[in-house]
């Protein structure tokens, strides 16, 4: 089966596994939405704070009680056209991610505005996320900005190093890897500290450790990252 766009670390993005750090309020709000609270939640903050994780975790939580949900990462759905949003208000929980990507794109803005209205009328729970808060998104449709700002708007802060460390080590443990604290700190100090990037690195290290039968020690990590391009961000391991 051909599965494009598979981002492996997304697997297992659930709410229970989210390390709240300074984002406990956001977690609480998303949990309420996942349980069906129709007050819309809007999360904003830079990449790497865990917004996408929270949105997908909410979908998984809703799915666990048999409720239909939809995760809509607008950054990746552009090729389909805004008609993709038709009829989606019929789910119990809507999770719309990367809203910044459609700012200024008239048809998408209109489609999202109408989806929001239809969802709101039906009492559909909604969680949305973007890098900026609604008023700073640069939306061409003031009606949309105003509606997005009506719900509970919460800033998601990027995790501090301690949270990053916990997340990295937990994720490693979940994959059956032992990432010693020293090695984890090495990653934090030598690489981009964006969690999304770090988790992709962990995937690389996982594969390398498996292939070479070696443990995740600092020398080994240094060796793996020493490869050309190893420390650059934005590289996704192809789905296995």
């Amino acid at each position: 089966m051909q599965l494009p766009l598979g981002i492996r670390w997304d697997q297992g993005a659930d709410l229970a596994g989210f390390v709240p750090g300074s984002n406990a309020e956001a977690v609480t709000a998303v949990e309420a939405a996942a349980a069906g609270d129709p007050v819309p939640v809007f999360l904003h903050g830079p990449s790497g704070g865990g917004k996408s994780h929270l949105l997908q975790g909410a979908c998984r939580r809703a799915g666990a009680v048999g409720a239909a949900s939809a995760y809509l990462p607008l950054s990746q759905l552009g090729e389909h056209g805004p008609e993709l949003l038709d009829g989606l208000e019929g789910v119990r929980l809507l999770a719309v991610d990367d809203i910044d990507c459609i700012a200024g794109r008239r048809q998408w803005e209109h489609a999202l505005f109408h989806l929001y209205n239809r969802g709101h009328e039906r009492g559909t729970a909604m969680v949305m996320a973007a890098r900026q808060p609604p008023a700073a998104l640069g939306l061409g449709l003031p009606d949309l900005a105003s509606r997005l700002g009506w719900g509970l708007v919460i800033r998601v802060r990027t995790p501090d190093d301690e949270v990053r460390l916990t997340v990295l080590r937990t994720k490693a443990r979940e994959s059956g890897l032992d990432l010693p604290e020293k090695a984890a700190r090495y990653l934090l100090t030598r690489c981009s500290r964006d969690l999304v990037h770090l988790l992709r690195l962990l995937d690389r290290l996982d594969a390398a450790s498996l292939a070479q039968g070696r443990r995740l020690t600092v020398p080994f990590i240094r060796e793996v990252l020493g490869e050309p391009g190893a420390t650059r961000g934005g590289h996704t391991k192809p789905p296995s």
């Binding site: 997908q56 239909a68 995760y71 809509l72 789910v91 789905p239």
Partner: peptide, 26 residues
């Protein structure tokens, strides 16, 4: 993968009869 499941599969509603599963897509 979670993302595909959440985007495409979770929005489906199922109607089941003894011999048919009807999947309703939005």
């Amino acid at each position: 993968p979670d993302q595909q499941l959440n985007t495409w599969v979770r929005p489906l509603h199922a109607h089941e009869t003894p011999d048919t599963v009807r999947l309703l897509a939005p």
